[in-house]
Every structure is written in structure tokens, then in C-alpha cells.
Design a binder for these strands. Structure first.
Lengths: 231, 231
DNA sequence: TCCGGAGTTTGTTTCAGAGCAACGTTCGGT
DNA sequence: ACCGAACGTTGCTCTGAAACAAACTCCGGA
């Protein structure tokens, strides 16, 4: 295993207040690993024995119903902690996370969690902040799911992807990792058929531009309108 | 303000590991207040300046969409912490909480949060545990909302109420606080009409027994069946 | 080069459940 | 005792979106 470079972490919020030597410690305890697209990092219900930080790539966090239906609860972008079940006194992961594109993540054994929170200034604060954001975000999704029609939900989902992972290109904002119609249907609780129809219609209207597994939003403002008022 | 009795808190998880003298301290900083049915304890978006513990009664935690639709995110039962936005570094409450029945709650200024977590053993642990449970619960609801048909959702909602607040009576398990059809519709993202129809049907089948604002589940096992497999 | 599977599109059918409307019932206040 | 408001029930209509069905396209591997 090659030595990890300290600059990997020094700018990321949970570690940004640390001394150089502390970052060294953190890295020395970390395991770095690469995940191919489609690979699971951990699975729902398994022993929560490690916690993670995504360095590169994108993940989807997924829940499965007893009936076999899946839904995508949220996406993780580089620089975010995930699998932080230990912070919540859980002994088992509440969801599955899967690499949506080739990804790299660091991980630590849960036994270090309390060390991290007590010894490293800002780490606990930042972790709980992410947790708070995530809780709020899920509540948003829930509310949206309960009250909005499919078209608005899909518009919102697209906007969320764009805000979280979008990068500017000529002709619009591009979603930075592979997304299928099916993925979007699992974010919005609908069928891939309906999503496909909506995207086709929007493409005809010049709002989006999509090919297989790849979406560019050409007119974000018009998508905001469709999503109902505020962005 | 009368002196509060120490036995109020000594058995509740977040405080159960504390010395008598520590409980005294906690109580001396607390403000106790009574809320009439229908009163808001705090509202979405307002400054998160206090955190709370429900001593008696029941609360609903509610979110409102820009379009004016409401949904009930969760219910709070006696002994639970709520309004713990400060634990998540939020400066504003993410939802509104309303007394579903006459209720009594203690509260403390947020400035004490870090004192509590550092000085009182078990307090931090227990708080984050509740948080974790709540996050898991909301993910459950979200998944359910995204994948299940209305009938199952309503059945699940009823079972959740029963599990959380149900008490045995002759002839079934009774939900311990006033619930309207409209409330249930706001828990399940449907209309009060549909809920009314379902309850009528179930009453005819002898599964529930309801009068205005009051529901008794007479055949919980049959409701479990309707909710789809596991309880 | 061909094959198979994954992803996508589009048409048609069907129905659960929202929307609308009207009425009945219970409750609290005066 | 009465009134008005909040809560609940039920019938009818109509539509959004699921379900079913069938092809088409792209991609990677043998």
C-alpha cells in the first residue's frame, strides 16, 4: 500500500482544522480502496464495522423493500463522509451504497470513531452537520414525494443531481456520472417508462439533452419552473 | 415556578446514567411549559434557540410545502428529546412541532447543549442514538411512500401509531391521542376522503373501530397482513 | 462479426385514487 | 337550545400514471 498524500484531506471540512501531524495519523489508519462502477461498498443490514470518506467518484445510497423494489435515498459526492452508522450508535448499516461511477474511498474501523471525535477538533462538528443536512434533505424528499405529482418530482430530482454534481459544459450543465432512466425512477418512486417519456418531451422542448446514461440540462431555469416555484 | 422533581428524568435514557446532583443541575436549568392541543412548540424556519424533552402528551412534527400542503414527518412520545437542531449545527428548526394532545415539555437554551454532551455521561450517546433511529425511520417512510400503494401506506401508518403510542383496552389496542382522518392523510400523502373510505371498509371487516378523533385497532394481525408482510 | 443483454422509446390499455360535491354528525360556545 | 365550525361519510367523475407490450439501439465480449 503506497503512502497517502496529506493534501488529500487537508482541504476537506471534517479535517480542515487539523495539524499536519494529525492528518498524518488519520491517513496512517485509513484504508484506501477503488470500487468499479456497480460495486457495493457496504450493504444494508450488514455489520457496520467501518466508516468512510469518498475521495473520488459518486455513490448512490439505496434501500430495498421486502418486495424487492429499490429506491435511491441520496447520492454521495467526493469529500463527503458516508457509512457513518457508528455516529448514530447503530451496529448495522441502514442502507446499501453502490458506486455509480468508478470511485475511491478511504475507510476506518468504527473503533476509531470516538478517537476522531474527541481528539480532532472540528471533526465531530462537521460530521453532525452533514448528518443534519442529510436528515433535512431526506425530509424534503419525503415531503415532495407525498405532495407533488410525478412530473415535478422528476424535475426536482434532476435539479438535485445538477446542483450536487453538475459541471458546466458548452450548451448546458452536465450530470457528472452515469444516470439511467431507471435510476431516476428509483429516486422519484415512478417507473422508467414515465421517466423516459418525460425526458423525451423535455428534449423536444429543448430543456434537456440526453443520451444513454448521460444527461445535460440545457435550460435549468425552465426545469425550475416545472419543479414548482423555488429551486 | 415550582421546583421540579428529580424522578421526572432519572428513568429516561438520556439522563439515566446521571448522579442525583447532576439531574438537579439539569432541572435547575430547565424551563417547563404546558401546551394546549393544537399549539405549536416551535415552527419551521425559526431560530433554533432551545432544545426540548417531552414529558407528557404527544406531538406531531410537520413540514409545509411552499404550495401549502402539509405532511406529518413523525410523532413524538413522552420521554423523547425533540427540537435537537443544535446537535446538528443547524441555526433554524427544520420542521414545526405541534401538540397533538395537551402536552408538557422541558426545554433548555442551545448554549447548554455542548455542556450536556461533554459533562453528562450517556447524554450524547443517547441523543445520537435517537437521531439515528429517527433517520432510519424517515428512510423507511420514504421507501414506503415511494413503492407502496395507498392502502398499504395507511395500514403501516396505523401500525406505527399503534406501536408507538398504543395501549391495550378491552376489544383492541387504542391510539392514545386524538387522530383525525386528515392527520392520517398527512402521514401517508393521500386525501382524507381515501382514508375515510379505508377506515369505513376496515370497520366493516372488524379490523378497526373508530369514532371521531379516536381509533381502536381490534385486529392488529389483519392490519399487518394488509400492510404487506413484516410488521 | 455476430450475439446477447442492458438501456431506451413509444403505443395501448387499465384502474387506483384524486377531485368535486353534497350531506350527515358531533362538539363547543353563547 | 341553538348555531356554526370542525369532522366524517359517500357517491360520481375523470385523469395521471402504472401495467403491459413490442421494438429499437447501443455496447462489450466471444
Amino acid at each position: 500500500m503506497p503512502k497517502l498524500d496529506e493534501s488529500l484531506l487537508s482541504d476537506l471540512p471534517p479535517f480542515s482544522l487539523l495539524e499536519r501531524s494529525q492528518i498524518r495519523e488519520v491517513l496512517d489508519h485509513a484504508v484506501s480502496r477503488r470500487y468499479e462502477e456497480g460495486t457495493a461498498i457496504f450493504r444494508e443490514g450488514h455489520d457496520a464495522d467501518r466508516f468512510y470518506m469518498l475521495l473520488d467518484g459518486y455513490l448512490r445510497v439505496v434501500r430495498t423493500t421486502p418486495g424487492g423494489d429499490q429506491i435511491i435515498v441520496l447520492h454521495i459526492s467526493p469529500g463527503q463522509l458516508f457509512g457513518i452508522a457508528p455516529a448514530l450508535q447503530r451496529d448495522t448499516y441502514p442502507a446499501t451504497s453502490i458506486a455509480a461511477a468508478e470511485s475511491i474511498a478511504l475507510s476506518w474501523p468504527v473503533s476509531l470513531w470516538s478517537d476522531f471525535t474527541t481528539n480532532y477538533p472540528g471533526f465531530a462538528t462537521e460530521s453532525y452537520k452533514t448528518l443534519g443536512q442529510r436528515l433535512g434533505q431526506i425530509q424534503d424528499t419525503l415531503t415532495e414525494m407525498a405532495t407533488q405529482a410525478v412530473e415535478k418530482r422528476v424535475a426536482c430530482a434532476l435539479l438535485r443531481l445538477v446542483n450536487q454534481t453538475g459541471r458546466k459544459t458548452e450548451g448546458g450543465i452536465e450530470i457528472a456520472f452515469p444516470v439511467t432512466r431507471h435510476d431516476i425512477s428509483e429516486m422519484t418512486g415512478t417507473t422508467l417508462h414515465t421517466v423516459s417519456r418525460l425526458l423525451s418531451a423535455w428534449q423536444k422542448d429543448g430543456i434537456v439533452q440526453s443520451t444513454r446514461k448521460h444527461i445535460v440540462v440545457t435550460a435549468p431555469h425552465r426545469l425550475v419552473l416545472l419543479s414548482g416555484i423555488e429551486g
